[in-house]
Amino acid sequence: MSNRIDRRNSILINLTLWALTILVLLPFIWLIRQAGPQYVLSTRFVFMNQNGIVLAWLKNSLLFSLTALAISVISSVTAGFVLAILQIPFRKFLLFITLVTMLIPITAMALPLYVLVDKIHLTDNIWGLIIASSYYPFGTFLSYLYFVSAMPGDLIGMGRIDGLGDWGLFWHLGIPLSRSLWSVVIFFSFLNLWNSYQLPKVLLNDPRHYTLPMGLELLYGSGTAIVGVLMLIPILGVYLLSQQAIERGIFSGAVHGQ
């Protein structure tokens, strides 16, 4: 009896989830049906007939996103580990500031960031944008929550008994037990950087230095859709690469017995 109810509930859950999935997919299917063939034809137009500017934006976007991704992910996951596991002064204050700076609207931060980037002579330069975008408090807090919840105190204690120092704990326990966390932070950081719009708009002036989301605005009406669709491809690629880890779970570390 209980098995039958269980099976019925499983079928209901599956039906509900598939119905929702189809509902969300409907506009995308409509979009592809309406404009699919035109997209294919306009790809050549967008990439060739704009003096190659779209390719320049693509190059800028890749350089910006991948470099800032490397800096933001390494610094934020390491910081999350330190704040959760190791002893540092003003730990709670640093966590609080991490949370507060995450909550500040970009409107308040954009001009001060412009002034600071200008002081190091990197305005209208992709490297200025990279520096200004590499601070990733969301990843730090997510990493902090992960390490606090997923690294059992006993394991860290045993690591200490085995002679591991602070670096050793991070290298031999923190990194191997947090591969799924790295994947999740990489995915969300890439998503954030690849779609970044407001800060590049404040820091970059010359259209040749634009990233794709900014360029998309210039192209509005003459190929926006095709560039928009193409912009999705790297995000889907990173998602698929990280899906296995996401499937295993953000926390799937020591306590999961895997």
Binding site: S75, T78, A79, L94, I97, M109, Y135, D166, W167
Partner: peptide, 25 residues
């Protein structure tokens, strides 16, 4: 109480926090 290693490990993040978060605020 505090060792140098954790401060070194967190220093890149602190530098970014200072430059992109705290000072602009």
């Amino acid at each position: 109480k505090y060792r140098a290693a954790p401060l070194l490990m967190i220093s890149p993040y602190l530098a970014l926090m200072l430059f992109c978060g705290f000072i602009p605020l």
